[in-house]
């Protein structure tokens, strides 16, 4: 239990650090900007209570916002992310399996499940983020292109980092 908490704490700090000092400076003009920090919410254990999940997501978004000078945007996007995560997991994961499979990781859940999990959650997160940032529907085509390209960028980074820390089933 304590190991899980410490693990997630370290993950939080490291991801915020990478996002703010490294990925903030990377981007293909304004079209594709990666948001790797959502990996923290993706990898929270299955058994996390809903309230804790939302509080953590909100805090994460607020931390990123503070560094980006965009108060509220990332926090709103991570709230959507947490909500979609709850729905997605309810739909696809059986309740009985939860004790043996503590965390939604690539090595445990398999590539196909993890890929769709990342794809859907990232799309929702980026859609909220960019729509709130532009706050208008007039440039919708441009915004959608940004959403798609940024999502591809983020998904590639998420999958890469999962492959780097790949661990086979511990059973």
């Amino acid at each position: 239990m304590i190991r899980i908490i410490i693990n997630n704490l370290i993950r939080f700090v490291v991801l915020v650090f990478i996002q703010v000092f490294l990925l903030k400076n990377i981007g293909y003009y304004n079209l594709a900007t990666p948001f790797l920090y959502i990996l923290f919410v993706l990898l929270l254990p299955f058994e996390t209570p809903n309230i804790l999940l939302f509080v953590l997501s909100f805090l994460l978004g607020l931390t990123i916002d503070t560094f980006y000078d965009t108060l509220g945007i990332n926090a709103a996007a991570t709230c959507v992310l947490a909500f979609v995560r709850i729905i997605f997991i309810n739909l696809t994961v059986q309740r009985q399996g939860l004790e043996t499979e503590p965390e939604p990781k690539l090595g445990i859940m398999g590539f196909r499940w993890f890929f769709f999990y990342t794809l859907i959650l990232t799309l929702f997160h980026h859609l909220t983020l960019f729509l709130l940032e532009t706050f208008t529907f007039s440039d919708i085509k441009y915004t959608l292109i940004r959403v798609v390209l940024s999502s591809i960028f983020t998904i590639v980074l998420v999958l890469l980092s999962e492959f780097i820390f790949f661990r086979k089933k511990e059973r």
Binding site: V55, T66, L71, G72, I73, A76, A82, F83
Partner: peptide, 29 residues
């Protein structure tokens, strides 16, 4: 889950809109 979502999402939106107005909340930047 849905109610938590509503609560936290509206907090963020309130922050965002207040921050966008002329009087910026200048603490968290």
């Amino acid at each position: 889950a849905f109610f938590f979502f509503i609560i936290f999402f509206s907090i963020s939106i309130v922050l965002f809109v207040r921050n966008n107005s002329f009087q910026r909340a200048s603490v968290l930047n």
